[in-house]
Design a protein around this nucleic acid. Structure first.
Length: 226
DNA sequence: AATCCCCACAACCGCCGAACC
DNA sequence: AGGTTCGGCGGTTGTGGGGAT
């Protein structure tokens, strides 16, 4: 039987108070991150170590970018989700200042619904109502075509393509078995680090797909419009 | 004004893998 | 080699706020 991560008795739960936040900030400022298990006691907090870690990573860290997601961030999340699936920490890693929890929440509360409204299955990013429709589903509600994200992802049923793509993004070394991934990203962002990531991903991925394999897959190309 | 409902988001929980002993 | 600990991740839940009725 696995030990619980902490002694449940005598630990606070729920929302953090300002005093607790301050104690955590002060402690980490002096001692740095790490040793989450022993941190609560050392910092004088009646919290579980995991709770402290989560609070710090998702809320108190000084480099966290708070506020609404920009359109380019949203587009990037959609593309990365198509590539990686629910690998929120990986996706968040490509969004400076954003946390996995934030990205996950934003996906579940905004993007998922938005895609479904557009007739796109948020799980596999395929059109499920209009399989051959490649234009804006409703031009009056989706605004202009200032950003057209052409996204085509092919993967096998066993998800290998996705996991390969994930490891590919992580270590930037093309895996040997990525042949069934076919990503075609066309995006018109202003010059930014995010744009560079997209371009980098596009170039690298394109270089590992052969013509034969490209012809082999005929999954509909999705056009995502704002 | 009161109540209900929905949404957004913070936080918790359980599981997994890596590191350590 | 096997057990234990710890950090990290993803899924899920709880709750407060705001809009609708």
């Amino acid at each position: 039987m696995r030990k619980p991560c902490c002694d449940k008795q005598g630990t606070n739960k729920g929302a953090w108070s300002k005093q607790e936040d301050q104690k955590l900030i002060d402690y980490i400022r002096i001692h740095g991150e790490g040793c989450w298990r022993s941190l609560p006691k050392a910092a004088g907090l009646h919290r579980c170590g995991k709770s402290c870690r989560l609070r710090w990573i998702n809320y108190l860290r000084p480099d966290i970018k708070r506020g609404n997601f920009a359109q380019d961030e949203e587009d990037l999340i959609i593309k990365l989700h198509a590539l990686l699936g629910n690998r929120w920490s990986l996706i968040a890693g490509r969004l400076p200042g954003r946390t996995d929890n934030e990205v996950k929440n934003y996906w579940n509360s905004h993007i998922k619904r938005k895609l479904m409204k557009m007739g796109i299955d948020p799980n596999n990013h395929k059109l499920n109502q209009y399989p051959h429709h490649v234009g804006p589903l409703n031009p009056t509600t989706t605004n202009s075509m200032d950003v057209a994200c052409k996204l085509r992802v092919c993967s096998t049923d066993n998800d290998d393509g996705i996991s390969d793509a994930a490891s590919y993004l992580e270590d930037a070394t093309p895996p040997t078995g990525i042949s069934n991934l076919d990503l075609d990203l066309t995006i018109a962002f202003p010059s930014s680090p995010i744009k560079n990531i997209i371009e980098e991903s596009q170039q690298k991925t394109a270089s590992i797909v052969t013509n034969d394999e490209e012809e082999q897959y005929t999954v509909p190309t999705l056009l995502l419009f704002r």
